[in-house]
């Protein structure tokens, strides 16, 4: 059994505030990822790559299909998992690194990075020293470690975020453009970290827009092509996913989705 097995997943968003229109995001996607493999999702902007990662992480509900992951000695279907199980899966099995750091008010960068280890029950001193080592590796200046990252630059925040995502031993990592605003030197370090994870047998499912990055880490690519959608909200979902939709309105709906995300971040 592969570490991650995605079969025939499908999802659409129903925008109740816009007259109940249905926006298909993913349809009939299947793939598997083996242990120690780094697979990059490929496709144009708005094709639903991020949605796939969020479905695997349980942030987006999966309407059809199954997402099987190996959690300890069990196989869990994330598409139908109970929130309580999902919480444990996230704690020890599936990690997620987005492009944005979710800043927790008043918590220092050091504590923020150490937090996933503490949640696993790691000893406080061990967690802190591991966090510091990782921050150091990612060239986050030591003078910043004790400060809350809210005022850091975009690149610094992103590196804190990477450290937070990479500190644990989760066997499956989901990376959503974690290196988007990094300079060449730090990108190189991220590549090294990813390769190190790979060597340790960690499975990764990633999105990278940067071609150099993609080539450096990817073992395999999975194509995610944009779905075309109709505008009629009352149509059943299976039909809607097959109806064409102009690219402009597709982009618009993507923007609308982001609206939800950014709203909660503050």
């Amino acid at each position: 059994m592969p570490v991650l097995h995605v079969s025939n997943i499908g999802k659409q968003f129903v925008m109740h505030l816009r007259g109940g229109i249905r926006i298909p995001a993913i349809s009939n996607l299947s793939f598997s990822v083996e242990r120690g493999e780094c697979v990059v999702l490929n496709g144009p902007s708005g094709a639903g790559k991020s949605s796939v990662l969020k479905m695997v992480y349980g942030t987006y509900e999966t309407e059809n299909g199954g997402i099987l992951v190996r959690h300890g000695d069990r196989i869990i279907d994330i598409a139908s998992a109970d929130p309580l199980v999902m919480k444990q899966v996230r704690r020890t099995t599936v990690g997620y690194v987005s492009q944005f750091l979710r800043v927790v008010p008043r918590i220092s960068a050091r504590d923020l990075v150490a937090e996933p280890l503490l949640a696993e029950g790691e000893h406080h001193d061990v967690a802190i020293s591991r966090a510091e080592a990782l921050l150091d590796r990612l060239n986050v200046p030591e003078s910043l470690w004790a400060l809350p990252p809210a005022t850091f630059s975009g690149g610094e925040q992103q590196r804190v975020n990477i450290a937070r995502g990479f500190i644990t031993q989760h066997p499956l990592l989901l990376l959503d453009e974690p290196s988007a605003s990094l300079d060449a030197r730090n990108r190189q370090i991220v590549i090294e970290l990813i390769n190190k994870k790979k060597a340790a047998g960690v499975t990764m499912l990633c999105i990278f827009h940067d071609a150099e990055m993609r080539e450096a880490v990817a073992d395999r690519f999975i194509e995610v092509s944009p779905l075309l959608s109709g505008q009629n909200g009352s149509e059943p979902s299976s039909d809607a996913s097959k109806t064409p939709m102009p690219p402009s309105s597709r982009a618009q709906s993507t923007q609308k989705r982001r609206g939800y995300l950014s709203g909660i971040r503050t």
Binding site: F13, M15, L17, K54, T59, Y60, E61, P83, Y260, G263
Partner: peptide
């Protein structure tokens, strides 16, 4: 559901309204 699921992928009209009103 999970907090991030409810807030990022709200299903119900009211939840969508709530989330988009922030």
């Amino acid at each position: 559901g999970l907090s991030d699921r409810v807030l990022e992928d709200p299903r119900q009209p009211y939840t969508q309204l709530l989330v988009s009103s922030v």
